[in-house]
């Protein structure tokens, strides 16, 4: 197992280099110049100053050299400074990650709680109106484009009925930390994010539960005279949950990476929104930092899922 983990982590290094190299090449292949973006507010800047700025940022060096310089700094965990805000990238990402995590973790917990319950229950009550409701919701929740659902939510609940804010993390101009205000802003994006999760998990749990309750050992458990509750929680549910662990690997990765689309629809200042802005503003250091952090988290997420899978199901052995 230790060997498996080490090998997987070793594999992460070429992956990260590949991703960053590719995105570096793509960004630089496009015309345009970050110095232009930086000096946009100062049109009277002299050509000498621009040259000097380019030199300071290392933008006058050949491209392969620039990449190696970046890589060398990255190896010392120095992600550089943003071209736009001039703040350290690591600091900016730290702030945004907290915001993203608040959003995604809340949505994930809600989706898991509702999704698992609904899925198991609908499998047990197969063919009833509840089962049909869950199945219809699972299909619709999976099919509907989430950004559009967000737009419709804003239209109905923020614009028409004025129940929720249309975006942001706090009310503008509000000083200090107000828990109620935060929660109020958190609800709309969480609802939309959780919808997809609930649809996914409930469908998954329904199929798995149906599969498990057909097994011989469930029949044996009933035959032993166990009450239904014990059979369900001790025997059925535990086994039905196993495959969900693999699905969770992807969710775990998305937890820190944020939700680019939903964060944009609801102007939520998380990592996804940050990536979107960085692409538009050609803020290369921020973008590269985000890619490294994002990819690392995805790799760790899947690794954790694989480890958890081996723990909950001892039949699985990772070589």
């Amino acid at each position: 197992m230790t060997k498996f983990i080490i090998r997987r982590l070793m594999l992460a290094i070429p992956t990260l280099i590949g991703i960053t190299l590719l995105s570096f090449a793509l960004q630089r292949a496009a015309p345009g110049d970050p110095v232009r973006v930086m000096t946009f507010a100062a049109p009277d800047i002299s050509p000498e100053e621009i040259t000097q700025l380019r030199h300071q940022l290392g933008l006058d060096q050949p491209l392969p050299m620039q990449y190696l310089v970046w890589l060398g700094r990255m190896a010392r965990l120095d992600m550089g400074r943003s071209y736009i805000t001039h703040r350290p990238v690591s600091e900016m990402i730290g702030e945004r990650m907290v915001n993203s995590l608040t959003l995604t973790a809340t949505a994930l917990l809600i989706a898991l709680a509702i999704g698992i319950t609904a899925g198991v229950y609908s499998a047990l009550k197969r063919g009833t109106w509840f089962d049909n409701l869950v199945r219809v919701f699972a299909v619709l929740g999976n099919v509907v484009p989430h950004f559009w659902l967000g737009l419709v939510f804003i239209l109905v609940f923020s614009v028409k009925f004025r129940l929720f804010p249309s975006g942001g993390i706090t009310t503008l101009g509000k000083a200090g930390f107000d828990l109620f205000d935060r929660l109020w802003h958190l609800i709309p994006p969480v609802v939309i994010l959780a919808t997809g999760g609930i649809a996914n998990y409930s469908r998954y749990m329904r199929t798995e539960t149906l599969e498990v309750i057909r097994q011989d050992y469930i029949r044996t458990a009933y035959a032993k005279g166990l009450v239904q509750r014990t059979v369900l929680f001790r025997h059925a549910l535990r086994n039905a949950l196993i495959p969900l662990v693999t699905v969770l690997g992807g969710s775990l990765a998305g937890l820190f990476g944020g939700a680019l689309i939903i964060e944009n629809v609801f102007s939520w200042p998380g990592m996804g929104r940050m990536a979107y802005d960085a692409v538009l503003q050609r803020d290369y250091p921020v973008l590269m930092g985000l890619l490294v952090i994002g990819s690392t988290l995805i790799i760790i997420g899947y690794l954790l899922a694989d480890i958890a899978y081996a723990i909950v199901d001892p039949r699985i052995k990772h070589e």
């Binding site: 992956t15 960004q27 292949a29 496009a30 990536a275 979107y276 994002g294 990819s295 899947y302």
Partner: peptide, 27 residues
């Protein structure tokens, strides 16, 4: 298959944004 696995664990959305913006701007 290693390559496929690596592709599956990429942060797809930011990469899509970078790729589509850069390619679109190439003269």
């Amino acid at each position: 298959m290693r390559f496929t696995d690596i592709m599956l664990t990429l942060p797809v959305l930011p990469l899509l944004l970078i790729a589509s913006k850069s390619l679109r701007e190439m003269v």
